[in-house]
Design a protein around this nucleic acid. Structure first.
Lengths: 141, 141
DNA sequence: GTGATTGCAAATCTTTTGCACTAAA
DNA sequence: TTTAGTGCAAAAGATTTGCAATCAC
């Protein structure tokens, strides 16, 4: 049973890093807690760095970038390309898609089963499909 | 009837610029010819600038960027976001989607009617759908 | 200890901008 | 002429990298 007053034990994040083969340093643990303990699903390097600073966690922006990429390579995060100006990372690594509100930079999930990709042509010779990304761009009415 | 030996008369590109309200300068005409006279469908600023240079057209990279954006705003081109590292522009402005081969940066069209988006949730409050982009990421087998 | 990780600052890369110059109407 | 467009070089952002200092094991 879960101990009282402990929505998500420290060790859960720690084990997650261990399982990914990442040494659980102070910075990685702190960022992982921000990311996986019920926080935002969608972050940019800049936004995560701000949240860290606000939470009194001292991490350099370079380390945030490095950490986001390490987490992505390890499968803890997923990178989403919706805007040429900056990279987004998503803590939801299940099959799904996105609404993207360009004016504010906000992302909203669309469950994977809400979209049907039918009758797709064969991929270019010598290649195979790695992932399908659907971005529904919306604007202020 | 089309004159012999003239796949696409100069005036067609010229009229296209005029219709878009863009003054047909030497640079815009040259770039428009490269873009719309059977060339590549998908370009980056860098690739178009290289093609221009190779064709002995002297245009600065800044002008290529400006021109690509002016053409996009005027509806002559469409911008495609597939890679956070650089912007792609597509001369195909009809409804369609893309295969994207990350290793080479190559894009390939998928006709718009090959993809069905069904049962989409309502867009975020106060917004309406502007466009749906599907990117099928493929990799070397 | 010792090898991985971090922080900082500098470097890099794409894209935008300011401004004097040039060309289209 | 008069105003829009161009080129250049410099600026601006986002991201990365080199390297000495620091930390996990």
């Amino acid at each position: 049973m879960e101990p009282i007053n402990r929505t998500r034990p420290y060790s859960q994040v720690l084990d997650r890093l261990r399982a990914a083969g990442l040494r659980p340093t102070r910075q990685r643990l702190a960022l992982a807690k921000l990311l996986f303990d019920g926080g935002d699903c969608h972050v940019t390097a800049e936004s995560l760095h701000s949240r860290a600073t606000a939470a009194n966690i001292r991490v350099s922006l370079a380390t945030v970038y490095n950490t986001l990429h390490q987490f992505t390579v390890s499968g803890l995060l997923r990178e989403i390309v919706v805007d040429a100006a900056r990279s987004y990372f998503d803590t939801n690594i299940t099959d799904h898609h996105h609404f993207y509100l360009e004016s504010s930079g906000r992302l909203e999930d669309i469950p994977g089963d809400r979209i049907v990709v039918a009758n797709l042509p064969a991929p270019p010779a010598g290649t195979s499909i790695r992932r399908i990304d659907v971005v529904v761009r919306v604007s202020e009415k």
